[in-house]
């Protein structure tokens, strides 16, 4: 993919002949126009099934969601009122919603950098190692394939305030025990720890794939050019060449972290005192426990918009900097 196409012709027309020459000697007469129209019709016809399916499966549900979000619909209540933008203004003053929004941001802010950096470090270590590479790869990938709900019970045991192994070990070295999931200050970092544990393996596998795709000659060239230390080889070759992978890893990690739900639902239920309330958990509560479909829809729309905005920033701004070919 050449993103800066027009640059070529402006700068050096005599060195690089333009690649896309117009078809030679093709008079745009009536017959030609007829063929074009025919082709256009065929193209629309061929893409029609896909368009219909996309409309039914993707656009309509979203449209329904947006429509519902502008009302005060409740499940089981026959009448509903159109609130318009007030529905969203209400959210702005909804302290529960704002708290869960902030909690989610904190959670994402903890999980993303830690799991990306750790994933990269693990991938580099495994790549540099000679023995047991497949073993380490599988071990670190285990949390990815393990069922979160099932693993949550293991974490509940590990983090149990009185007989959890983590606190027992802390006690062993003379540190005070921590109420991991029961203290409103610690619960978010504790959940983030589980989130990191889940995401690292996946990020590592993605980074390993990225590392495998780096042209070995580049390392040889860097060595010839005088890059003596692993550190300068990393910054000269590995890091820039991993750009596209890193962008992808960060994107995936952010999406997965924003969607945190299982650990909250099984371990804390948003508690204590709503201090681990996250967006999906709040939406779930509003929609399925209190049956406030309208409010839940508005939250869901905000959720989607925030996610889309993040992705847009990443793809639009960063992608231009990390794709070189």
């Amino acid at each position: 993919m050449l993103r800066d196409g027009p640059l070529r012709e402006d700068l050096m027309p005599e060195v690089l002949p333009p690649e896309d020459l117009p078809p030679r000697g093709a008079p745009r007469d009536a017959a030609r126009g007829e063929i074009d129209r025919h082709e256009a019709r065929a193209a629309w016809l061929l893409s029609l099934p896909t368009l219909v399916l996309m409309l039914l499966l993707l656009v309509l549900p979203c449209a329904a969601l947006v429509a519902l979000s502008l009302t005060d619909a409740e499940l089981g209540v026959p009448e509903m009122h159109f609130l318009g933008l007030d529905a969203y203004l209400n959210l702005l003053t909804d302290r529960d919603f704002i708290r869960s929004f902030r909690n989610t941001a904190v959670y994402v802010g903890l999980v993303t950098p830690a799991s990306v950096v750790l994933g990269l470090v693990l991938a580099l270590l495994i790549e540099a190692g000679t023995d047991l590479r497949a073993f380490f790869r599988s071990v670190f990938f285990l949390p990815v394939v393990a069922l979160t709900v099932a693993m949550a019970s293991v974490w509940q045991y590990l983090m149990h305030p009185s007989f959890g192994p983590i606190n027992l070990m802390l006690k062993l070295v003379g540190l005070p025990s921590v109420n991991w999931l029961g203290s409103s200050d610690i619960v978010l970092p504790a959940l983030a720890l589980i989130g990191i544990w889940q995401a690292v393996g996946f990020n590592m596998v993605l980074f390993l794939a990225g590392l495998a795709g780096i042209n070995r000659d580049l390392y040889a060239a860097a060595e010839m050019d005088g890059a003596r230390s692993a550190w300068s080889r990393f910054w000269t070759v590995t890091w820039p060449m991993l750009g596209p992978t890193t962008l992808f890893v960060v994107t995936i990690t952010v999406i997965n972290a924003v969607k945190v739900f299982e650990t909250v639902a099984t371990l804390t239920q948003g508690g204590p005192a709503k201090s681990s309330d996250v967006l999906l958990w709040t939406i779930y509560q509003e929609g399925f426990v209190y049956l406030h479909v309208g409010t839940a829809s508005a939250m869901a729309v905000v959720f989607i918009v925030v996610l889309m905005a993040l992705l847009l920033v990443q793809t639009r701004i960063l992608e231009r900097k990390v794709h070189y070919t």
């Binding site: 000659d217 060239a221 010839m224 050019d225």
Partner: peptide
């Protein structure tokens, strides 16, 4: 090691750093 031998190599794949301009590529060594 290679970095201490003061030789230069041209590779079949050219092995240019794709994120750097031609100037930066030549500047790097």
């Amino acid at each position: 090691r290679a970095a201490d031998r003061d030789m230069a190599m041209v590779f079949q794949s050219y092995a240019l750093y794709p994120h750097l301009t031609a100037r930066q590529n030549m500047m790097l060594p």
